[in-house]
Simulated assay, not measured.
Amino acid sequence: MDVRRVVIVGYEAAELLDIACVTTPLVMANMEGPPPPYEVTLVTPGGRPVTCGTGLTIQAQGALERVTGPLDTLLVSGGIGHGAAAADRGIVAHVRRLARESRRVASVCTGAGVLAATGLLDGRRATTHWGWARTFAVRYPAVRFDPDPIFVRDGSVATAAGVTSALDLTLAFIEEDHGGDVARSVARQLVTYLQRPGNQAQMSMFTAGPPPGDGVVRRVVRHVTDDLAGDLSTATLAERAGVSERHLSRLFLRHLGLTPARYVRRARTEAAAQLLTTTRLPMAAVAARCGFGNTETLRQAFTDRYGVPPSHYRSTQSARSR
């Protein structure tokens, strides 16, 4: 191809950031990288302007129905209009048609629902915005939805999580197409990470939402986050809460979906991730401060949670974000 044709599918009430986090890095890559350049086109049903969920109206550059391949990349945006888009037989049929003529296919956020409606995700692992993963898993049982990763690659199909994860996926595409130097240059222009690891968790328990409603769980959670280096065994936490270990486990599973032990392990791992990217503490000091017995225990927990060892996480995240 003389150009890499990238078609982004929008629709009424699509999310503007889902679109912009793809278009902007690709256009920047054209300024930084070697040929072939990306030719980016936003298409909508009928080629009509669409009003995004935030109220801004954007002009399409083409009609979904009239686009033909071959394409380098087909990407479906998400947004609060995703349900209507997934229920629109015309949109679904044309996305399915174009996917057959594309080197790779992707979605952002709830755009995964549109891809799932086409059957393109059947038998594949996929992700979407954490708030929709459970709903989509029930609605599309043939798809293995994972609510945790920033993005998932399964063969030629990629799915990104909520909103700005589109930036991470697009930078990964640029690195794949043009190499790490071009991707890093684009990331610097955007004042962002090169890219977060695809399997980095979407949500940190420290920012995921309000404290649990149950008073016992709320007190234990507060104690855990305040004293990560302390004795946080289930037996100790249960004694502190004045309940049995079995009852505490039931409460945690009901309100947090995790056992006390798994919650503690996740809290410690996420705290370690924060220290690795914001401080220059030696690995042993990070492990000790976060309650891990040694660096090997930290490494095992970190690899289980993020898919990479802590040393790799620190070298790829902290250095590039400064």
Rank of each mutant, 00 (worst) to 15 (best):
P260R: 03
E65H: 02
G119Y: 00
Q274V: 15
R266L: 13
A238K: 02
C52G: 10
V6L: 09
F292Q: 03
T24F: 11
P37M: 15
D148K: 10
L258S: 02
V216W: 00
E245K: 04
S249E: 13
V43M: 13
R48G: 11
V152N: 06
D181S: 13
R144S: 12
A106W: 00
R254Y: 07
A14P: 14
T73Q: 10
A86Q: 04
A142V: 02
A14T: 15
R104K: 10
H223A: 04
G113E: 01
S77D: 06
A187Q: 05
R48K: 11
T110N: 05
N199H: 13
G123Y: 05
R246H: 12
D18P: 06
A137L: 09
E245A: 11
T269A: 07
S185G: 12
R289V: 03
Q300E: 14
P149R: 07
L115M: 02
P260Q: 05
G47N: 07
P260H: 03
V22R: 06
L232S: 05
L16A: 07
S315W: 07
L56E: 08
D214I: 11
R89D: 12
P210F: 10
T23M: 12
V152K: 06
E175S: 12
A166P: 00
V95M: 04
R222W: 15
M203Q: 15
T57S: 13
